[in-house]
Design a protein around this nucleic acid. Structure first.
Lengths: 212, 212
DNA sequence: CACTAATTCACCCTATTTCGCTATTGTTTC
DNA sequence: GAAACAATAGCGAAATAGGGTGAATTAGTG
């Protein structure tokens, strides 16, 4: 028996969910609330396995509420259900600790499947959301691995790495066992290749769109 | 009619997939290969909508093959199917451009559903994989968003932002309409709060574990 | 009102960085 | 073997950064 709580401000939807859960086999609705004002005490009194969470709600939104739930009831799973397809929401929901993200266009049986899926250790997502998650993942983790590292030579890369570490020319020279003038030369060449004119700018560029 | 190519070194599995696709309605197998040696010419001669890709294969592995496919046939979707649950493989597969990642324990009908799902713009994942993707996403993208921004004041944040942009003290002073000595003061305070001793180090730290 | 924090500015001095030009030694490429 | 490039190194000038010390102004707080 999977115990489910509902947070959804739309009265009609909330009651539909409640009915759906209570009539379906293997599910039970342990609470249905229109907002997250008393979320923590409510879940303390009526604990559940999974929370079906709306994002757009008056007062505290679903993302904030999710954080709160994971802080106070880390074992409780949160399944986000919303009309928002925006990357920002998907991103924030995952980071807040959500275990799934489904769109409101999902069919009734789809909701039950998603809840069962989450309860079984999965992270149900509407197909389009899954694709977005993959894209976000790729874009944010491998910004662009295809850039030529600006044709920096090995030695230049080493120097740049040390610059990123905040070292002075003198220190870098000592660590690479070369003269300080050599470092000066390398830095000049690095600046030219990165089209920058200061150490801070180089470090910024190096971190933002390169390895290091 | 969804056209599917199979890359799978296990003869028995390969033929099973082929049979499954050819007997199922709405699918057609346009090729089944035991390795990726002639992948590009093979897909040129027998193009397809989706590639069902195994990871563990002699010669080129499925991840490398996926990259190759996305480079040469960006429109072709790649569905990874493997026995590997390891984060490293999931991570690499997504970054290589895969559109889904399913485990070999999936049922026959599960394969068809996954292929149809991918074809419809989704990214099918075995429940456990979906959960891992969420975890990886969270761990890699928001290492620590809860840090106090080191108690920098508003003005200090502005100055730091400009430092990150590679500006000189003089320029920053001009942009904030204050004297250059004021900027020096702010920078000194910023360095103290961040526990750094140079602009490059401050920029590095600012980008790595803070806003900006 | 007294206290504190934030913001602003000044002066001084040294260290470091940036950028100009030049040059030698290997290694790889054509 | 000439040409190109990487890595090394040097010199010198001008600009910038970094650190010490001190201080006035404003805003907010108990």
């Amino acid at each position: 028996m999977i115990q489910v709580s509902i947070f959804e401000d739309n009265k009609h939807l909330r009651e539909t969910f409640q009915l759906l859960l209570d009539t379906a086999e293997g599910f039970i609705c342990t609470g249905a609330y229109p907002d997250c004002r008393d979320l923590v005490p409510q879940l303390e009194v009526n604990p559940c396995d999974i929370v079906l969470m709306d994002i757009e709600m008056p007062g505290m939104n679903g993302i904030e509420a999710t954080k709160l739930i994971k802080e106070n009831f880390p074992e409780t799973l949160v399944l986000i259900q919303t009309v928002f397809f925006e990357d920002e929401y998907i991103f924030d929901a995952i980071c807040a600790g959500a275990s799934g993200y489904i769109l409101k266009s999902t069919t009734p049986v789809g909701y039950l499947e998603a809840i069962a899926n989450a309860n079984a250790g999965g992270s149900p997502m509407t197909p389009g959301i899954a694709r977005r998650v993959f894209e976000l993942f790729k874009n944010n983790l491998q910004p662009q691995l295809a850039n030529d590292t600006y044709n920096l030579t090995n030695q230049e890369k080493k120097v740049l790495q040390q610059l990123v570490d905040g070292k002075s020319y003198k220190l870098i020279a000592a660590e690479l066992f070369v003269a300080i003038d050599t470092i000066k030369s390398h830095v000049r060449n690095i600046y030219a290749k990165l089209h920058v004119h200061s150490g801070t700018e180089a470090v910024s560029k190096a971190i933002r769109d390169k390895i290091v």
